Simulated assay, not measured.
Amino acid sequence: MKAIRIEEPKRITIVDLPMPVIEREDQVIIKIAAAGICGSDVSIYIWEPVLLSPIQG
């Protein structure tokens, strides 16, 4: 599967990773059709400190 890895400030690479393995019957693998970038992703890309908080919802 493809993944985006932030190697260092302002340097992103697309890498191939092995597919995850389902280990329990309550797990699933989903196929992503589209993805987006939010404001905190931009802060990580330019290597600014990010306020980390639990994901809501």
Rank of each mutant, 00 (worst) to 15 (best):
M1T: 08
M1G: 11
M1Y: 10
K2T: 09
A3G: 06
A3D: 06
A3V: 05
I4Q: 08
I4W: 07
R5M: 04
R5G: 06
R5V: 13
R5A: 13
R5S: 10
I6M: 14
I6A: 09
E7G: 04
E7V: 11
E7D: 10
E7H: 12
E7I: 08
E7Y: 11
E8C: 02
E8T: 08
E8F: 13
P9R: 03
P9S: 04
K10L: 14
I12M: 15
I12E: 14
I12D: 03
I12V: 14
T13Q: 15
I14V: 15
I14W: 05
I14E: 15
I14M: 15
V15C: 11
V15N: 11
D16A: 07
D16L: 06
D16P: 00
L17Y: 02
L17Q: 14
P18Q: 05
P18W: 03
P18M: 03
P20D: 08
P20N: 12
P20H: 10
V21A: 03
V21M: 01
V21H: 02
I22A: 02
I22W: 01
I22E: 03
E23T: 04
R24A: 00
R24M: 00
R24V: 04
E25K: 01
E25S: 05
D26Q: 10
D26K: 02
D26N: 14
Q27Y: 01
V28Q: 03
V28A: 03
V28W: 05
I29K: 04
I29W: 00
I29A: 00
K31M: 02
K31D: 01
K31A: 09
I32Y: 02
I32E: 00
I32H: 01
A33E: 03
A33V: 07
A33S: 04
A34M: 10
A34Y: 06
A35E: 05
G36V: 04
G36R: 04
I37F: 11
I37P: 09
S40P: 03
D41G: 08
D41N: 15
V42D: 02
V42F: 08
V42K: 07
S43K: 09
S43I: 13
I44A: 09
Y45C: 02
Y45H: 10
Y45N: 14
I46G: 02
I46E: 10
I46Q: 07
I46W: 08
W47Q: 08
V50Y: 00
L51E: 13
L52V: 15
L52D: 11
S53G: 09
P54Y: 00
Q56M: 12
Q56E: 06
Q56D: 14
Q56G: 11
G57N: 12
G57I: 05
G57R: 13
G57P: 08
G57E: 07
